[in-house]
Nucleic acid binder design. Sequence first.
DNA 1: AAACGCTGAGGGAGCGTTCCCTCTAATGAT
DNA 2: ATCATTAGAGGGAACGCTCCCTCAGCGTTT
Lengths: 329, 329
Amino acid sequence: MQRPTLAAVAARAGVSKSSVSRVVNGETTVAPEIRELVQRAVRELGYVPNAAARNLVTRRADAVAVVVSDPPKGLVDDDPMFAAVVRAASRELEASGRQVVLMLAGSDDSRRRVEQYVSAGYVDGVMLVSLHGADPLPAALARLGLPVVSLGRSAASVPYVEIDNVGGATLAARHLLDQGRQRIATISGPLDLLASQDRLTGYRDTLRGTGRRSIVAIGDFTRISGAEAMAQLLEDDPVLDAVFAANDLMAIGALRTLREAGRRVPDDVAVVGFDDIEAALYTAPPLTTVRSPMGDQAVATVRLLLSWLEGGPRDSVVMPNELVVRESG
Amino acid sequence: MQRPTLAAVAARAGVSKSSVSRVVNGETTVAPEIRELVQRAVRELGYVPNAAARNLVTRRADAVAVVVSDPPKGLVDDDPMFAAVVRAASRELEASGRQVVLMLAGSDDSRRRVEQYVSAGYVDGVMLVSLHGADPLPAALARLGLPVVSLGRSAASVPYVEIDNVGGATLAARHLLDQGRQRIATISGPLDLLASQDRLTGYRDTLRGTGRRSIVAIGDFTRISGAEAMAQLLEDDPVLDAVFAANDLMAIGALRTLREAGRRVPDDVAVVGFDDIEAALYTAPPLTTVRSPMGDQAVATVRLLLSWLEGGPRDSVVMPNELVVRESG
DNA sequence: AAACGCTGAGGGAGCGTTCCCTCTAATGAT
DNA sequence: ATCATTAGAGGGAACGCTCCCTCAGCGTTT
C-alpha cells in the first residue's frame, strides 16, 4: 500500500535519485537512454511524486485559494454567480497546472481560518470573490506578502477586475428614460458592497436633472429580497412604471411580485435587471438586462493572478458591459 | 519575509522543539508554565506551522478533494446543483477542519490529472459528484486505496448517497395520472447518468398498464435542451397534455417553449419538474416538482466520507423525496 | 533508605523531495 | 597528443516538522 518513492525508482532504474528527479521534472540535461530507463521504472512502479516533500523544498504549492465571501444568510444555494465564477476560475487555473482550494469566508471565524491557511504556505496566491467594502480580509492577506487579486473592487489596495457598474446602471436607467417612463424605481443590492453602491450611483446620477425623483428599496441580491423590495416599492409608489433591479435574481423576484399584483410587464411596469444570467432568458417575459459576463470576469481575474505569480504586471482591469434588450422593458 | 519556524519559536521560548510541537498540537502532557511560554512565543512571532513539512511526516493532508464531473458541454454556467452542492459540502468540510480542493473532471485529460493529484497524497479522501454510469474515475480512485464516496450512485462499488430517483419519478407520473392526464410525455436527462435512467424507469413503469404510451425526448439537464426537447415532443404528439421533465432546469426550458407555442400551463399542458431548485418558485406559473434537496444530499455525502476517514461505518444512503405541488401541474 | 514507577522535557532520526556541488568522461581546439 | 571546456551523473545537505526514545526528577511503595 506504500507508494513508491524517488529512491525506489532510482534503485529500479539503476541510476541516482538526482537523475530521476531531473527526468520527472522534465529537465533537458539528461541522456536519452537514462531518461528512457527512468521513464520505464516510473511506469512500472506507478510512481507519483509526493506533494508534501516537493512543496517543502521548493516552497511552492502550485495551488491557489479561491476565497468566496459568503452572503450573510448563507442560505442562497442556487446562486448563478457562484457557479459561473467558480467554474470558470477552476477551469482556467487547472489549465495552468494549478490546484484550486475553495474556501468560504462568511464569519469572522472562517476569516481567521483563511489567514492561517494561507500563512501555512498551502497556496501560492489568492483570488478573492465578492467582498464587502469593509472586508478586512484583502488587506490582511495582502499583508502576508503573497499575490492576492480580487474579483470586484475592494477598499484595500489589491489589484482587481470588475465591470463598469456605474456605466451599466446608467445604461439601464437611460434606456428606461428613453422609453418615456416617468416613475423609475430601483431595487438596490446591499450597500456594503461597492458594486451595489456604484449601480445605485449610476441610477441616481442619470435620474438627477430629469425632474424625476429616486425611488429606492434595498435588497440583498436574492430572489426573495427582490420580491419583497418590489412589494415595498408598490406600496411606496403605486403608479410607478419602471424598475431597475441591481441584479437579475432580484429582477426575477420583482417580476413575480408584479405578476401577483396584477401588473403587466412591460405594459404597466418595465423591468430591467443586471448581470444577464442564463435564467434571464427564461422569465416571462424575458428580461432586459445589463450584460456582465461573470465567467469572463473570473477568467480575467485568474489571468491577473497568474501574471503576478509569474512576475508579470498586475494592473486592475475594468471590463465594459452592454444592455441586452428583451421584452421586460 | 521568511516565516518563523518551530525552531525559532523554541529558541525564543527557551524550550525544545518537541515541547513547542506538543503545545501547537494541543497535547496534554505539557506543564502549564511551558505551555504559557510557548504560546507567548508563538503569538509574538506570528508562528504558523508549515503545511508541507507537517504533511510530509504525518502522511495526512487534512484536505479532501471534491471532484465534479463536468457536463460534456461545460458551458452551463449557472447551474444551481453545482452551487448548492459545492457550497454545502464546503461548509461541512470546513466545519470538520478540512480543506476543500475543487477539481473539475470533464475530459479524459483532467481525469488523469485528478488521479495524479490524489496519488500525490494531497488529500485524505475524495468526494465525487454527478458521475456518469460508465465513469472510470470512481473505480480508479477506489483502487488507490483511499476513501472515496460519491454523491449519486455509480457503477463502481463506491459508497454513495442518492435520492430515490425511481420513487420520485413515480410520484410525479402518478400525480399526472391522478389528474386524468391522457398523454403524458417525459423529457429525460442524458442516459449515461444513472439518475436519468432511474427517473425514466419510474416514469415508464408507472405508465405501463394504464393503456398510455411513453412519449420520450432526451435532454442534457440544461434549460436550452429542455426547450428543444419540448419542441420535439410537441411535434411528435401535438395533443399531449402533460410533461414530466427529469429536472427543473429542463422543465423551465419546456415552459418557455410551451408559452411560445401558445399552450397554457397547466390548462392545456401540465408540467412537473424534478429537484425543486429555488428558481422553480419563480417560474410562471410556479413549478410543481419533486423535492430532492441537493444541499442535504451533499451534507450527507460529506458525513459519509468523514465517518470513513475516522474509521467509522461507510454505508450508502438513499434519501426520500416528496412531491411539491404548485401551479404548473 | 532503596528501589521502582511515572510524568514530562529534550535529542535526534527520519519523512521524500530538490538543488547545489563535485567529479567523470567525452568533446573540441591547438 | 595534450589540455581546456563542458555535458551530464551522482552524492548529500537541506526543507520544517513529528514522534520515538532516552533520561532527569519526583513521589510511592516496601
